[in-house]
């Protein structure tokens, strides 16, 4: 381990002359790395907001990017279990293996919700360590940004001061934005919603909204018509004000249920790039809140 670290440090300056290569598994972490890293990092986002992060192919282009990465920033909590291990294995990049400073898992720095009480595939595609969609709560973004700032400073000491100053600047702007969002979001408290997948657990938890129905019969299992009909019947008893889905999810189930229940179906951006307004992390939450507030006046 120590030898590896020594090797790593010896090897680092060669690449540190150029910008630090950051491989972000999801667009939200690419955006965050951009906020903290600025011009000192070169960021590659492995996925876009139009792709389901659970189901990504371990494409050759991703292996090529992983090969040159100095820092890998991923969610963890098994979100990328179907593809990230292949990239790490095939790329032959010793600096970004799990357990080393070059490997950063955001989920390690926040408290995960919905940790399953039992692990059985009969319950669908469950994540043993909890729900991995942590970035939908802006408080988690702040926590991860602090940790990411520290990590960037650790692996690129030459620019540590710049990372810290950008990290502090981001935290200040983020805190101000959160205060603004919190005030605006007051009317959303206790509002009931139906969701397609548990993608927004942390968002709804932050806004203290209530989930009354999930369109997927089990996590990761496609909504089938029979189950949707039961959900529609259930919404007669416990009505929801809106149906939420992520931009990458198929619109059909949410639209069908929404028209059946006479409520709006919202395509939330889910992550940076999910729609035209969600160009960065601030835009992501601005647009999400605007859509929610519009649907629940």
């Amino acid at each position: 381990m120590r030898n590896l670290l020594v090797l790593f440090v010896l090897w680092l300056p060669v690449h540190a002359q150029a910008a630090l290569n950051v491989f972000a598994c999801e667009p939200e972490w690419a955006a965050l790395a951009h906020e903290v890293g600025g011009g000192d990092v070169k960021i590659y986002s492995a996925t876009t907001a139009m792709q389901d992060p659970h189901r990504i192919e371990a494409r050759p282009s991703l292996i090529a990017q992983m090969r040159r990465a100095d820092l890998v920033v991923c969610t963890g909590a098994e979100l990328e279990i179907g593809w990230l291990p292949v990239l790490l294995r095939e790329a032959g990049n010793a600096a970004v293996q799990p357990g080393l400073p070059g490997y950063f898992e955001a989920a390690r720095f926040v408290a995960l919700l919905d940790k399953p009480a039992r692990l059985d595939r009969a319950d669908g595609d469950v994540h043993a360590s909890g729900n991995p969609h942590i970035h939908t709560d802006p408080r988690n973004i702040l926590r991860v940004s602090t940790a990411l700032t520290a990590r960037l400073a650790e692996i690129d000491p030459a620019n540590a001061a710049a990372y810290r100053s950008r990290g502090q600047d981001f935290a200040a702007r983020w805190n101000a934005a959160m205060a603004r969002w919190q005030t605006r979001a007051a009317p959303l408290k206790e509002v009931s919603v139906a969701v397609q997948h548990a993608s927004f657990l942390y968002l709804l938890n932050w806004l203290e909204m209530r989930t009354v129905a999930t369109l997927e019969p089990k996590p990761g299992v496609e909504p089938a018509l029979g189950h949707l009909a039961r959900v529609a019947a259930q919404l007669q008893v416990t009505p929801a004000r809106m149906v939420l889905r992520a931009a990458y999810q198929s619109p059909r189930p949410a639209d069908w249920l929404a028209s059946r229940a006479g409520i709006p179906a919202l395509a939330l951006p889910y992550t940076v790039g999910g729609n035209a307004r969600a160009g960065d992390l601030f835009g992501l939450f601005d647009d999400t809140l605007d859509q929610l507030l519009k649907a629940a006046p």
């Binding site: 876009t48 139009m50 792709q51 389901d52 189901r55 990504i56 192919e57 990458y248 198929s250």
Partner: peptide, 9 residues
């Protein structure tokens, strides 16, 4: 391989 917008789901 082809998938619309890279979303194979």
């Amino acid at each position: 391989k082809w998938a619309p917008n890279g979303n194979a789901r």
